[in-house]
Amino acid sequence: MKIIPAIDVISGKAVRLTKGDYNQKKEYSDSPLEVAQRFEQAGITHLHLVDLDGAKAQKPQNLEVLEVISSKTRLRVDFGGGVKSGESLEAVLKAGAQQVTAGSIAAKDPEMVFSWLKHYGAEKVILGADVVDEKIAISGWQEDSGLDLFPFLEQYLAKGVTYCICTDVSKDGMLQGPSIELYKKIIKEFPQLKLIASGGVAELNDLYELREAGLYGAIVGKAYYEGRISLDELAAFNK
């Protein structure tokens, strides 16, 4: 299972939010590049970079951060936040992202995301599924899309989606453990999906449980930044 550390960015700085709340923001002293380089030195190969300004502005705002990390590390970066148009997606790939996460746009404008999958291929586009009680949440988790998770996934798999980041909103930043049962249910229904867990990882044992459940990857954020999982532990797990 891939360990995928997250770096959330506001105004060029690494931050963490709790449950997506911009008012519950913690800023870190190290630059996003310094954080990314530490991950790379520990043998981590993947990075989840989230442009929180972009998510608010509906257009990527921190492409310079992406460019710096992509040019100064060998990390495989997936980028999310504000990618709402073909133009934005093109800019993100040009700035060095290996993959782009289609979040709210996948619920709001599926035809556009289908066209991205067709044009760029499934290796470039990750489906973002933010979930509250098996319903898709959109617009920074403030809005219920009215879409049920399983038909949503089925529709995208039919269009060639390979990767999906699934975030249980109730777990994000809470350090209470990930939604193992939900992920098991998804994997049982769609075994071909490369499912990436997001939200709730609180300790090393959570990662072992996710691997045991058959997850392709797990995003690690607050547990690392709050010192609950060390870089050495992540490196050892990753081997």
Rank of each mutant, 00 (worst) to 15 (best):
G81F: 04
A42S: 14
D78P: 06
G214F: 01
K185T: 15
T45F: 14
E143V: 06
L193C: 01
S198G: 12
L234N: 10
N238A: 13
Y208H: 15
D133I: 03
G160D: 09
V125D: 03
K84I: 12
F190A: 00
L52A: 06
D130R: 03
V35D: 01
E233Y: 05
A107V: 12
Y183K: 02
S179N: 15
E87H: 11
G20Y: 07
F150E: 04
N23S: 14
K124W: 10
R211D: 10
E143Q: 14
R211M: 08
F150Y: 13
K2F: 10
I44E: 12
V92I: 02
F79D: 08
D168Q: 08
S198N: 10
L63M: 01
M1G: 14
R74T: 13
Y120P: 02
G160R: 00
K222Y: 12
C164K: 06
G96A: 00
Q37R: 15
K124G: 14
E181S: 12
E233M: 09
V169W: 10
S145N: 12
K159Q: 15
K222C: 08
I44H: 14
S88W: 09
R74E: 06
K25V: 14
D130N: 06
S104P: 10
I3Q: 11
A95M: 04
L33A: 11
Y224A: 14
V92L: 00
T167V: 12
L33C: 11
I44P: 11
L117H: 03
K94F: 06
P178N: 12
R228Q: 08
M112A: 14
E40S: 07
K159T: 13
E226F: 10
P191T: 01
L193H: 00
L157A: 08
K188T: 06
D232K: 15
R74F: 12
E34C: 07
N62W: 08
I219Q: 01
S29P: 06
I105K: 06
C166D: 09
D172H: 05
K222D: 13
Q58E: 15
C166W: 07
R211G: 14
S170Y: 00
K184P: 01
D133V: 03
K159E: 15
D130K: 04
A197C: 15
L153C: 07
K239Y: 03
Q58T: 09
P60R: 12
E134C: 10
L175D: 06
I229C: 00
I10R: 13
F114N: 05
K118V: 00
G82Y: 04
D206N: 10
K2S: 07
S88P: 01
R228N: 13
L204V: 09
I105E: 13
Q99C: 04
L149H: 05
G199T: 06
A106G: 11
D30Q: 14
E64R: 08
L175W: 03
G200Q: 11
Y28N: 13
G160V: 08
A107S: 15
K72W: 02
S230Q: 01
K25Y: 12
D206I: 01
D30M: 13
G177Y: 05
Q24R: 09
G221V: 07
I196H: 02
L182W: 05
K194Q: 05
K19F: 09
G140F: 10
C164Q: 09
A213Y: 10
I187K: 13
K19Y: 06
L75M: 05
K26P: 00
D232V: 08
L231R: 03
A107F: 07
L89C: 07
V131Q: 12
R38K: 15
V9A: 09
K194E: 00
